[in-house]
Design a binder for these strands. Structure first.
Ligand SMILES: [Zn+2]
Ligand SMILES: [Zn+2]
Ligand SMILES: [Zn+2]
Ligand SMILES: [Zn+2]
Lengths: 145, 145
DNA sequence: GCTTGACCCTGGAGTGGCTACAAGGTTTGC
DNA sequence: GCAAACCTTGTAGCCACTCCAGGGTCAAGC
């Protein structure tokens, strides 16, 4: 299988496949006489695994760790659980901070309905006022996430 | 005001302030004889505005647009409303995709409770099976967002 | 035999929003 | 007189790609 076929079989762009190889997530395939990469079904399965984990927003570093586990089936699996737990914690924290953000943006949006001059726009007035510190705590301590 | 004082007054790191200047969000301040940047209260207010918008996760490019509006108070404000609407849409879409992700990760997490050998870990088995296409659609069409 | 187009290769640059140096100059306090 | 704390510029790194330049390879069609 050449890289274009692997790309079509998995829906992963050719450049991304080469990037994963350079990042150590895909073992370097053998090469045809002309230098073209030649993949087998093991590569396809491994690439699908990587993409499935990426769809779960798992970082490439963590995917590398999971692949190491696959290569060491007799090890203890506790670190896998902890990896998934940490991922879940990150996702939940991000959801909470985005929900807070959504509330702030909704409130902001309600400050202007019509097509006014900028000087009269309630949104901009609110932003300027909040930045001055009136009723705003959000930018005193870092971004929401 | 020197850059360190502005940094302490706003809680924004010195490097970030210089970065904003290079990005065109802060006008270049005047310089003292020794070449040190010398800021006034206008800079402080503008920097606070930038940080407040960043806390709302507005991109630097959009913040630049908002600053342009501040400099043109007689323009129509419709684009401001649209900018905030687009930001809200992005945040809401991201929340929905992260909630889907949270459900998937929670379901995944339930596949292993104990400290087993990797070969028996339900999480890893589930990941491998899903990557093979058993009951998985997530990686067929791009990442969740 | 010659062209066209699809495919492949490597290596480097760009994205956003910072952060972290390196290598120097300046000021402040003791 | 000297160290610590400040300032300057410029560059490189982070993540996970994405795109491009500048080439090589190969099959089909004329
Ligand atoms: Zn999947
Ligand atoms: Zn308005
Ligand atoms: Zn704020
Ligand atoms: Zn387990």
């Amino acid at each position: 299988m050449r890289i274009g076929e692997l790309s079509r079989a998995t829906g992963v762009e050719v450049e991304t496949i080469r990037y994963y190889e350079k990042a150590g997530l895909l073992p370097p395939p053998s090469r045809a006489d002309n230098g073209y990469r030649a993949y087998g079904s093991g590569h396809l399965e491994r690439l699908a695994f990587v993409r499935h984990c990426r769809a779960l927003d798992i970082s490439l570093a963590d995917i590398g760790r999971l692949l190491d586990f696959l290569d060491h089936p007799e090890a203890a699996c506790g670190d896998i659980n902890r990896l998934v737990d940490a991922q879940l914690d990150r996702v939940r924290a991000r959801i909470i901070s985005l929900q807070a953000l959504e509330r702030q943006l909704s409130a902001l949006r309600r400050h202007c309905d019509e097509d006014l001059q900028v000087r009269d726009c309630g949104i901009l007035q609110e932003l300027v006022g909040a930045a001055r510190g009136e009723a705003c705590t959000c930018h005193e301590r870092g971004a929401p996430a």
